[in-house]
Each structure stands twice: as C-alpha cells, then as structure tokens.
Amino acid sequence: MSIDTRRLARRATQVGKPLALFTVLVAIWQVVVDKGLVPTVALASPSEVLDYIVTQRAQLWTNSQATIKEIVLAFAIAFVVGVVLAILIKEFQILHDALLPLLVVTQLVPSVAIAPLLVLILGFGDAPKIATAAVIAFFPILINTVAGLDNVEKEAIDLTRSLRASRIQTLRYLELPSAIPYMFAGTRIGITLSVIGAVVGEFVTADKGLGYLILQGSSTLDPTLVFASLVVLAGIGLLLFGAVRVVEYFVVPWNRAPAQRGGRS
C-alpha cells in the first residue's frame, strides 16, 4: 500500500514537470498573440482555441468520431495482421527468409506516399483511409513481435523440448507469452502511427474527419479551426496511447516496473 502511494507520487512528479512546462509555453503563446507579435492569420491564441472547442464541440465531435473510427479499425487490422504474420514468419523459415526482407524494403517507401495509390485502388469511402493507417501501423507491431518470438532463451526452448512439446505448444506456452511485452512495445508505436495514418488518409480524400477540418482551416485561412482540430487530435492520440498502457498493465503483470528487479533466472 505505502509502496503504491509512493509510486503514485513519483508518477505525479513525472507528469508534473512536463505539465508545468506545457503551461508556461501556452502562457507565452497567449501573450505573443495578445501583443500582436505575430500576424493573427497564422496564429490563434489558446483562449480563442479553447473558446472554439467549446462552442463548436458538436462539429468537432462528429468529425472526431469519423477519425476515431478509422484509427481504431486500422489499428485492429494492423494488430491482427502484424501478429499473425509474425507468427507465420516465426514458424515458417521460408517466410522468414523470403517475405521479411521484402517487408523491410517496402518500409523504405515513405508510407504516407502510398495513400493516393490506396485511393485509386479502394475508391473514396472510409476504406482508403483505414488502409493507409493500417499499412503504416502494422510494421512496428510485426517487427517487434518477430523480435519477441525470436528472443526466447535457448535453455527455455530446451526445457520445452525435454518435455516433448510440439511446435504449437512451444509457441503457446513459451514463445507467445514471452513475446507479449514486445508486442506491446510495437503496439504503442502502432497506435500512434494509426493516428498519423488516418489523418494522412483524410488529407488525401475526405469529406469529414479531423484531418479534413485541418485542411479546411488551412485553405480558408482559419487558424483557430486548425489549432482546435490539432488539440482534439492530440487528445485522442494521448487517450489511445494511455488505453494501450492500461491494457498492458493488466495483461503483462510480470513485466511491471518494480518486478524487473528480480528478472528471470
């Protein structure tokens, strides 16, 4: 109990310092705009942005829903494809040797550049946006899961061999569980990339969504709209990232910070 409160206190100071800096920066931003140090067409003051968010919450919320839907669907697809592919790559050497290098090479193409291509292929609905986000997000999930599946101690494999475990059993009882922390490392990157991917998709083709609002604000010289959308987008990103951390906390209890002391031996 007392340990938990101490950890909470430490967490609070961890959050407190960046929060303090953030407040200072916002205050500077407010002053800069108020004193007219920058042409207002480029910058909206924090109070204006906040005011806009409150008064236009209905519009922002409708567009947020569209974007959140794209992010979540894209992430789900990326996660399933990434993990399943990782398992196949682990289990079939031929895929490891043939497919994995190809996938790595495809990462040299800036993923955002494929969004227009996906529009050509998938048309103008939600599909190209979801596909763009999924394509961008799946790779870190895949690579981290592959690394996790490969990073099993040789002796632990010998243990399951001595118990005459089948390949599937070794995967189920040893390799997959030990890959879970890696999977989450990939997932934390993947969820962030899903947000980026969804916005990029909306930049290319959209009639709704926060990315669409940002473009609108930019083309109609409305910085308040741009900033308000950005703030909401940042909030969504933070919430999703936090959700992943919470799930991780409960799914990977053996890998929580204080337990790392003992390790495995």
Binding site: E155, L159, Y173, P177, R264
Partner: peptide, 25 residues
C-alpha cells in the same frame, strides 16, 4: 531435466510452473 537456471516462466504462478509438464503432456 533440471538446468542451472530455474527457467520458471514469469507469466505463470509458481504452481502453474510446476504444472507445466502436465499441460504439455
């Protein structure tokens, strides 16, 4: 077989680790 390292799986409780051979069999 017993190794120099216990090789207990950290995601299993102690009793679940003891029961690992049963699960695999």
């Amino acid at each position: 077989f017993m190794f120099q390292h216990s090789l207990l799986f950290p995601w299993r409780s102690v009793i679940e680790n003891v029961l690992l051979p049963v699960d695999i069999a």
